[in-house]
Amino acid sequence: MIIAENISKKFRAVHAVNNVSFEVKEGNTLVLLGTSGCGKTTTLKMLNRLIEATSGTIYINEKNIFDQKPEFLRRTIGYVSQNNGLFPHYTVAENVAIVPKLLKWSKTEIIEKTVELLDQLKLPFAHFANKYPNELSGGQQQRVALARALISDPPVMLMDEPFGALDPVTRAQVRAEFTAMPLLKRKTIVLVTHDIQEAFELGDAVCLMDKGKIVQSGTAKELMFKPENEFVKSFFDQQRLFLELKSLTFDDVWNEFETADETTQTPLFLSSKSLWEGMEKLSNLNKNRLIVYQSATKSLKYFTLTAIQNAAASYKQGK
């Protein structure tokens, strides 16, 4: 768990971060979203003291981070920097072993852990261990960077635009793998991005930042449908329809759909999915109508393109 209270950073006369507070619950992912220069990266780096806060308090797992030596603090926090930051003169295995070596693990322990983790990340040890970063693709490099941050199994992870250097296709792919990783589901994560879609997909909560302040924080849905001011509203204007469909789940608008009796459809399409995913499903399977299942009520509903559009429209009006 991370609690940041009234943290500020002044570079000479400029307030890069101004009185920001937030809380990340254990196992949750907080996304700091905003345009470049809004202070999101500065905020992130204050959490592992790469940048020292000018004022404010930060607690990670109930410990004041300012009571610890910065090096020791950082060894307990996973950190993925922008552009992956792999050491070009270290092999994949050596890169992954950096933190364990700092923590003085035994050699066998390091190898065991590395083999396990690389296999999980689809980078088979036998094939990749002795390669150098420049021999890997962008996506593979990013996964090594992730492995490097995860190897010591830190409870907290900080990620600074972790997918920023990847092309859109690889980006979507790595991101999908990322969300699917069981190892990451338990982690408390703070992630910085300027990509709204990424923020909505990965964040349990999103903090929208501007000029060093948090303008609004909440779930993607809250940001979309209950914007606190004009800035928040206009921030999402460009892809509004897409983002709305992405942030609404079938659960949110369950009553808008017609009941279905039974289904032969496998696998079941779950109501926790977003409306956007429903549309994708219809289009991918080339169907007019599909059935969605809500496990809480054990009920089934029909959905079509028109039904989804109507549901979204009435949610907007009804809010």
Binding site: N48, L50, E71, F72, L73, R74, R75, Y79, V80, S81, Q82, N83, N84, G85, L86, F87, P88, I98, V99, L102, A145, R148, A149, L158
Partner: peptide, 15 residues
């Protein structure tokens, strides 16, 4: 030396 590399070294807890 690329700043991303030194920064991630620092971020991992190297002195």
């Amino acid at each position: 030396v690329e700043p991303a590399v030194t920064e991630s070294a620092k971020g991992m807890g190297m002195n």
